[in-house]
């Protein structure tokens, strides 16, 4: 019994063009974000995971199923793609309903599940309208309803927040969280980092078809030894604290915050820094708070790739 989504040395080439190369992943339950600029291989990875494209090399397994077995694979997988086209002439309801009927469900159960999924994405009022007349956000939501409709264990969502207004975004994020909380695997791709930063249990950072880092954001950050950690310390005596910190060899740089009530410190050894902080606290300097300033996805991504394509 396998409880992970596994990529083993997976490469995908479209002719001469690299999709992804030598990908090794083991994705646990929870929300996993694939992050990278356009063309980094996020969609290819998702299409590989769902069998829409085949790996040129390597093996992929989704829990206990092979990607070559769509009949069983899609009983546990729901995929909301980025392809913004639908079978012609269908209403939103028919789109979800037909998908369920394709899966072999009887009319009554398909109807029930379709309405439940449509309710979950708040699209009941528009469900009887033709999809061709939907706005971008509505099309995004009906695709999501389709992916959710058969209550899959693995939910793969390609840029699921694209085209949604802020209210719909927060509703969808809540939906992803509740789905993940039930022990499901929610795989989200995005090139908007702050979007996934707050909801992801783990991230997979991609660049030019390569996985450059994976794991929990904080763990990924700590793996980047060559890059100093930035820490924001709030206190009433920032200059004294700065002087003391500079006595430690692992401190690289200290700058006083412009409000004179804190400082930003760069250290090459975070563990030693925290030990040092304990000593300093005992010496009488009143420290209000200590917080890492660069363990968000954006910082990690910039350290790893130095990409300017990432949307902030």
């Amino acid at each position: 019994m396998n409880d992970r989504i596994i990529f083993e040395d997976v490469s995908k080439f479209y002719g001469e063009i690299l999709g992804v190369n030598r990908v090794n992943l083991s994705i646990p339950p929870g929300i996993t974000s694939l992050v990278g600029p356009n063309g980094s291989g996020k969609t290819t990875l998702m299409n590989l995971m769902t069998g829409l494209v085949r790996p040129t090399r390597g093996r992929i397994q989704v829990l206990d199923y092979s990607i070559d077995d769509p009949e069983n694979l899609f009983k546990i997988v729901g995929y909301s793609t980025q392809f913004d086209s639908f079978p012609k002439g269908l209403t939103g309801f028919q789109f979800v309903y037909s998908y369920l009927r394709l899966g072999g469900r009887d009319s009554q159960s398909a109807e029930q599940l379709a309405w439940r999924a449509i309710e979950r994405v708040n699209l009941v009022d528009a469900a009887k309208r033709n999809v061709a007349g939907y706005s971008k956000g509505m099309r995004q939501r009906i695709r999501l309803a389709q992916a959710l409709s058969h209550e899959p264990k693995v939910l793969v969502l390609d840029e699921p927040l694209n085209g949604l207004d802020p209210l719909a975004r927060s509703e969808m994020i809540a939906l992803f969280r509740s789905t993940a909380a039930q022990g499901c695997y929610v795989i989200i791709s995005s090139h908007i980092l702050h979007e996934v930063d707050v909801i992801s249990d783990q991230v997979i950072l991609l660049s030019n078809g390569y996985v450059v880092a994976e794991g929990k954001i904080q763990n990924v950050r700590s793996e980047i030894q060559e890059h100093p950690t930035q820490i924001l310390i709030r206190c009433h005596q920032p200059r004294e604290l700065a002087a003391k910190m500079l006595e430690y060899p692992h401190t690289i740089e200290v700058s006083i915050h412009k409000d004179e009530r804190g400082l930003l410190l760069k250290t090459r050894d975070a563990d030693r820094f925290y030990l040092a902080m304990n000593e300093i606290a005992l010496s009488g300097i009143d420290i209000e708070s200590v917080a890492p300033a660069d363990d968000d996805v954006l910082s990690v991504y910039e350290y790893l790739i130095g990409s300017e394509e990432v949307v902030r």
Binding site: P70, T81, S85, F86, P87, K88, Y99
Partner: peptide, 18 residues
């Protein structure tokens, strides 16, 4: 026709043998 309309994936994402 469905490849040109970019809608073939609808079938390929369902739990059904190709």
């Amino acid at each position: 026709g469905e490849i040109l309309d970019r809608s073939l994936h609808f079938y390929f994402l369902a739990p059904v043998r190709r």
